[in-house]
Write a protein that binds this DNA or RNA. Structure first.
Lengths: 326, 326
DNA sequence: ACATATCCATGAATTCTATTCACGTTAGGC
DNA sequence: GCCTAACGTGAATAGAATTCATGGATATGT
């Protein structure tokens, strides 16, 4: 049983040197003398039996072992840091922070409806929403970057649990004066001359494509991507293109914009959104409470939409809370 | 910027106390005095601002914060430990250990054909095969428990890369005197009176079910599960049941056993096996070399089978090398 | 080419931290 | 009620990590 040689400390050093570029800069970051760092590094290298940097002139070049440790540092240090925050919350009598990841753009509006009541029931829990993941939502769950994942693509695997939280219909949104505005439904051919606006994600994740366009082997005249739902709908209302969004979402905006939802395809495109978490976390009370609440909200008005809409002020207020991981 | 308070050290304490049940036992494990532990724990608890254990009489009960840290320890410590081993290998001039995970039972025979040449080309790389995963193969990849995954269910997600490595046909194996032995193909109805032998995995992962039985809503008379391919085929050869396996595998055993492969379903069941790794690792030379070699082996005789079979001795010899994670 | 500013390494001195030792306290078993 | 097993505490000590002072090496600018 070899005793521990790599300490958290060492990982901090690797990260700092990498970030600072030089030993001296790293020392500064760590509130240490350059000398201290030099000593500590030398000792570590001695214990490991291999150098971590090649000293080329006054440049430090990571060796293979060094790169390996740096990767480890980037992986583990965030977990240490988050653990400290979490424990600090425990210490203050709070239950912790629920980090929710979102893989589906328009679900944000739905999430807000759940988060509101949730925060009321669990005053000692903070909620944090993340929307960008280096390794995708699933990776973020496995990597403990988030605790819950809202996604249209569940993945029933050992270690993860998904539950459907709501169903909706994906429809085409067009300007109310649009030639397709009064169609019963839209075919792939109907879209051929159109400008299609979508979120900037891979085509495989866009249902208009997978369910309608790709099977018919048809592409719209143009395909533009826009990040935000609001701007997207502004474009549609201005007659500058068409978009595919959940029906309930369109209905909420319909009050104040000249837009119309139209069924996509002969049978319509049905979608399901899932909420997933790590299996181990199922007995974390404030987490399972969120899942329970989320599944209950399902029956409470999504799809009826109009009248339950959220005031724009509230909406944008909460949106600004969103934290994005690089 | 709060400075680090949780150290690897502390995680070791959490784990040791949990394993030992008492402070004294834990101290023993850590080659420390009980007093040292007590001091160190007190300091940690002070810094965190919350107790990690409730002292109930002479029993230690983990608090919420303590449980949280214990989970962290169980997650992070193995990574530290593996990193130390890996760096030790770097230090000895070795490239490291390639940890291959397997999610498909019969692929083992295929893997052997790749590992042999690979070990020849990369004398400084060790290979380790793992077959059980707490969180499934994907979880093991994300959690850095393995570096490569052999699986029939690839998952194209950001952060992971999969490549097909070989195709094969899944066939029914029956005793050569079996009533179905000379059928052109097998229908779901044909299986109804049979005893079906499979590996002990979920029905959804068995192609006989997903492709044949479930669609027809038919179940075989009995369903037995057996761990090992050899015993499974012994059973089949003894007329005690039928099984579904890759055609090439059956052909290899056919030389020394009275068994016959028969096509499953009218069109046959085609399968593809994939090799996956973390995207970041793609530029690790010895790892990408394995993937390259694996894709090349595809054309070299799998499916022709007979004559290239592996001698039973070699086979079982290597099988015993398999390391299973709890 | 020379001075200069950076940057890293080293050894001895120092400060700080972890560990031990010795003892006290508490809870449960017989 | 006494004995054992287990944890807590304070002072003493052994052992680390950190600093200080310094020197050598390498780029940069004039």
């Amino acid at each position: 049983m070899g005793i521990s040689v790599i300490e958290r400390n060492h990982l901090e050093v690797l990260r700092a040197v990498n970030a600072g570029g030089s030993l001296t800069a790293a020392a500064e970051r760590l509130h240490l003398t350059q000398s201290a760092l030099s000593h500590s590094i030398r000792k570590l290298e001695q214990q490991l039996g291999t150098p971590l940097w090649l000293r080329e002139g006054r440049q430090l070049q990571l060796t293979q072992a060094g790169k390996y440790l740096l990767a480890l540092a980037n992986r583990l240090l965030p977990q240490f840091e988050h653990a400290e925050l979490q424990i600090d919350q425990f210490a203050r009598g709070q239950a912790g922070t629920l980090r929710i990841g979102m893989e589906c753009h328009p679900c944000y509006q739905w999430l807000l409806k759940v988060v509101g009541p949730y925060l009321g029931h669990w005053p000692m829990v903070d909620v944090d929403v993340k929307q960008k993941f280096q390794f995708g939502g699933i990776g973020a769950l496995f990597g403990h970057d988030i605790d819950l994942l809202v996604t249209p693509d569940p993945l029933h695997r050992p270690g993860l649990v998904f539950e459907p939280v709501f169903d909706y219909e994906q429809v085409l949104v067009v300007h109310s004066g649009h030639r397709l505005a009064h169609n019963d439904w839209i075919s792939a051919q109907d879209l051929e001359p159109e400008i299609l606006i979508t979120y900037p994600v891979a085509v495989e994740r866009l249902d208009v494509y997978t369910h309608l366009l790709l099977p018919a082997n048809i592409r719209p005249a143009r395909h533009k991507t826009i990040e935000t739902t609001d701007i997207m709908l502004q474009m549609v209302a201005a007659g500058r293109g068409v978009a595919a969004l959940p029906r309930w979402l369109v209905q909420e905006y319909q009050q104040r914009m000249a837009i119309v939802p139209v069924q996509l395809g002969e049978t319509g495109i049905g979608k399901q959104i899932f909420l997933g978490c790590r299996e181990r976390d199922r007995n974390v009370d404030y987490l399972s409470a969120f899942m329970k609440l989320a599944t209950e909200v399902r029956w409470q008005g999504i799809g009826q939409g109009i009248g339950q809409g959220i005031a724009p002020g509230v909406l944008s207020g909460v949106i600004s809370d969103v934290v994005s991981t690089n």
